[in-house]
Design a protein around this nucleic acid. Structure first.
Lengths: 211, 211
DNA sequence: ACGCAGGTAGACAGATCCGTCTATCTACAC
DNA sequence: GTGTAGATAGACGGATCTGTCTACCTGCGT
């Protein structure tokens, strides 16, 4: 792990010439294992040795695909972010702006019920890497900003008077909800949901077409 | 660091017979250094070697006071929690229940402006130790529950119809605000504060004597 | 038939980290 | 003065972690 100082200026996922890393059975296995272990146990708490062992992969193979543990961390976060972005865009295009806000809110309501819930990937990672210039932090910041912008867009499209500030507040609320839930569970979904929608549905906005 | 399994059943701060640890210049220095380093750099990222060096203390002295790094972590959290509890009780006794809620909200508004702000001690620690049975997690859970209960008391005293659920929601909001602020800063204090007080001041509650 | 890219197994090096131990020194109470 | 509790400096051991390296194998396209 890089000691928060010498971080390669660009820690891009792929090593080869054009675009993202080429596919490879071994690479996919590593990424899947890392995802499971990093999310469930924390990044710093999982050594590359363990990832290698549970990926059923040779040591050299691992380091060929990910020259550094940091590379793996970034690739892991990037793949998660990618999946999230794809899903959110699909929801937006198929169900419209209000569904986007519902989808973000759902991250709190539905996900935590699943077994092995441990909060949000990105928030946890940010807490583990205190140096804001760490490559992993960059990915986190970028992803949160992207989500916030999409929420802002959706609010604007719904005619909300202060989309940017409200998106910031909603992301804040979601962040707190997901952290608090991962810490001590969530008793009262109702109050949270009422607050959420009362912030979205200020006077002057159309009646909700969803839910 | 204990590997999330063998954790002493009771990791009490002091080693001596009665009550908490006895005072000692060396002990205080260690605790102060640990506080600074743990908060600023993260617990897992700071080795005992560094704490020892910057505390200007002999290695043996360190391990006499804190037989294990985990002991130090717990002592550190406990001291922070103690300070918080003392302050909150003072505010409550001197300024009443509404001031309690203002004080909790202030943790978001004022603290983040200070240099070296890195969010909430307890939230960050919880993110670093994924095992909920880790002694450090116990301290975090206990402290959050205590704060929540005091908020609930305050709301009840103010005549709020659903003090418990609202306390849960407010703590959630504060959690999100402090995490989001430590990640990307806080642009709009107004929206957050309006939301906060609109949750406190439901119809049927007296006009605010504070602020 | 040949070359080569990608995979494998495991030894190895250097750093770091946690915790123990010995031997010595100091300050203070009795 | 003497004993004891607390502090000190620093060596040491074992574990763990990241990353390198050698030597070998396999499958495939040409």
């Amino acid at each position: 792990m890089s000691s928060s100082q010498q971080l390669d200026p660009e820690l891009v996922p792929g090593r080869r010439s054009a675009g993202s890393a080429r596919p490879s059975a071994a690479r996919e296995r590593i990424l899947a294992t890392a995802g499971r272990l990093f999310y469930g146990t924390g990044i710093r708490a999982v050594g590359v040795d363990r990832v290698i062992a549970e990926s059923q992969v040779a040591r050299m193979t691992f380091f060929r695909h990910f020259p550094t543990k940091d590379h793996l961390v970034v690739a892991f976060l990037e793949s998660q972010a990618d999946a999230g972005r794809t899903e959110l865009l699909r929801v937006r295009d198929e169900e419209g702006p209000r569904a986007v806000l519902a989808w973000v809110a759902d991250g709190v309501r539905t996900v935590p019920t699943s077994e092995g819930f441990r909060g949000c990937e990105f928030i946890n990672t940010a807490a583990e890497f205190c140096d804001p210039s760490h490559p992993a932090r960059r990915v986190v910041d970028r992803h949160r900003a992207w989500i916030r912008d999409r929420m802002s867009d959706a609010l604007a499209e719904l005619g909300h008077p202060t989309p940017r500030d409200t998106a910031e507040l909603l992301l804040m609320l979601r962040t707190g909800a997901i952290v608090a839930t991962s810490l001590e569970g969530l008793d009262d979904t109702g109050a949270l949901e009422r607050t959420w929608w009362s912030l979205v549905d200020v006077p002057g906005v159309d009646a909700p077409p969803i839910r």
